[in-house]
């Protein structure tokens, strides 16, 4: 009984976790964003599922129908979808710039380059002159 009543939520949890795993375990920056959007979309299912009433219809008032699903989760999720696309757009723009600045969008390759930068500035702190660093501004405009 219990299992049947909750199957929807359990599958949604599985979906969320797949998305969450892709975000934190993958190193490709685009893939992470895809994972993030799957994670968020799955949270939307959770909200929409709780608003559903069996046998009800969409909350657009009409004299033919008596039972409507709960409109409030729909409103919240409309807002959340918009927030999601805003985050995705911003994230993609950052990925494009990272590719231009580092020549890669794999996390470990970026980290290697950052470590190198840090070594250089450490050397510089002890009096070695840094060779001309790659200028980000060239690609900026």
């Amino acid at each position: 009984m219990n299992i049947l009543g909750l199957y929807n939520y359990w599958i949604v949890v599985v979906l969320m976790m797949i998305g969450f795993y892709v975000v934190i375990a993958h190193e490709n920056l685009i893939k992470k964003l895809v994972g993030l959007s799957i994670f968020q979309t799955s949270v939307f299912f959770f909200y929409i599922s709780m608003g559903k009433i069996s046998g009800a219809t969409a909350p657009i008032l009409d004299e033919q129908y008596q039972l409507y699903s709960n409109p409030l989760p729909h409103v919240l999720i409309l807002t959340a979808i918009v927030v999601g696309i805003a985050t995705t757009a911003m994230g993609l723009a950052l990925v494009v710039r990272i590719q231009e600045a580092y020549g890669s969008i794999e996390e470990h390759e970026i980290q290697d380059q950052d470590t190198q930068d840090q070594m250089e500035s450490r050397l510089e702190a002890y009096g070695f002159r840094k060779k001309h660093a790659l200028s980000v501004r060239d690609l900026d405009e």
């Binding site: 979309t41 608003g51 909350p59 409507y68 989760p73 729909h74 409309l78 979808i81």
Partner: peptide, 10 residues
């Protein structure tokens, strides 16, 4: 799940 507006937006 009856969320027509959400479906449209998604």
């Amino acid at each position: 799940l009856d969320a027509v507006d959400v479906a449209f937006t998604e």
